[in-house]
Design a protein around this nucleic acid. Sequence first.
RNA 1: UCCUCAGUAGCUCAGUUGGUUAGAGCAUCUGACUGUUAAUCAGAGGGUCACUGGUUCAAGUCCAGUCUGAGGAGCCA
Length: 478
Amino acid sequence: MFNKRIKIKELLLQPAGQKDIVVMGWVRTFRNNQFIALNDGSTNTNIQVVAPLGQFDDELLKRITTSASLKITGELVSSQGKGQSVELVAHTIEVLGESDAEKYPLQPKKHSLEFLREIAHLRFRTNTFGSVFRVRHALAFAIHQFFHEKGFLYMHTPIVTASDAEGAGEMFRVTTLPFDNPPRDENGAIDFKEDFFGRSTNLTVSGQLEGELGATAFGEIYTFGPTFRAENSNTTRHLAEFWMIEPEMAFSDLEDNMNLAESFIKYIIGFVMQHNMEDLTFLDQRLAEEEKQLPADKRSEMGLIDKLRFVLDNDFERITYTEAIDILLNSPAYKKKKFQYEVKWGIDMQSEHERYLVEKHFKKPVIVTNYPKDIKAFYMRQNDDGKTVAAMDILAPGIGEIVGGSQREERLALLTARMKDMHIAEEELWWYLDTRRFGTVPHAGFGLGFERMVLFVTGMTNIRDVIAFPRTPKSAEF
RNA sequence: UCCUCAGUAGCUCAGUUGGUUAGAGCAUCUGACUGUUAAUCAGAGGGUCACUGGUUCAAGUCCAGUCUGAGGAGCCA
């Protein structure tokens, strides 16, 4: 067996004096022809490997360059240097893979995030991306653990779908038809009956409708999978391919939904605070450094860890859409005409409005409920006032909308009437409507954009830096 | 998709009213030193100034278009 190594994260916790230690990793720096900072991705802290002078020949030492991969055997001893408590005195050094220093793009210096995005295949070897992706992993794990503990069933909804009824955004078409000469019907339109699935199909924009089918049998389900939007969005908050979490609960109303979302967000943040404090501390310092470059009024009031702790310790503010509009209308910003867009009941709130509520007025996450029905999706449950639906959005500081959800319309007559208003064909969604025909129940759910959550927790500011290989307009390298 | 800004060495950037052979720091290489923490010191190499076209005696610099990137907006998660 080749691998009997100890991971560096674990090794650093061991007492000095142990012999025959095996570590493997990649060289971060090689100082003074003697000191190798070795990293294996288990933690940002490197193990200092000491190659005593005269014990290794120059030919070998020359091959120890930045990002060369090494297998070291040696003895763990107390360090004579100040930067670390223990270090590994090497008995053998094996270069597993060389790294040509003239060609290797990552240098022992600070790089811009824009540059690192161009070498996304190597950026995991930096401290920032090491921390970001370990936190991302921890969040994903915590999500499964949260729902599992609550008895939710993890449901895999399809990636390829024929339904476009949700209207969540532009879709990527999935087809095997030839581009140059596709089959045509008698009207000259492309004949999708000839396509692979015998119909027009797309990549999913949401697993919600299928999720509701699961919830109305299992009670509680959640999905956690990739989602695709072909919107030409060029922002720090949008991806063409992103991961979404969509829980759906039978026998639940809007308040149950809000309670679930809030406890969910707190749980996964708490999990990361408990398990990834070293990475969070690094990211906290990174953010503080970054913000030193900004003018004083653009800096965050709280550091990253303080912000996360604050979210954990405080209830989210819960207001209705109508109250939100009132707050905006009575705000100093409105009176001073600071808003670019009009504020009145019925508008779809703009980023500037949401930012004001979250960052200026409440200074914490805000749940806005009961939006006007005309600006929301067909499946949301109509309230008794005839004007609003039982929707809820959670707005987070610095990110904006992080959760969108609602109680679903379970009353068949009301649902079909709404579909008719919005020109959605019933035949297309016969299977969805069946849940309302056979044992319908009050139910609710929400969608949470995973990368936006990772942004919030890591303090990163561009969504392209929290997914391994971002897909955005004009960009699908790697 | 719209608005704004940017593209000069491997990276981060400077480059004046258009004017001789385009610079710096870091990185890399060579040498020195050897308990260093992004080691230090000395020296060297390294450029299609994003691309295409135009104006001009002369363009990194001015103009037009294209491409790419960033920030903001819209759309949304």
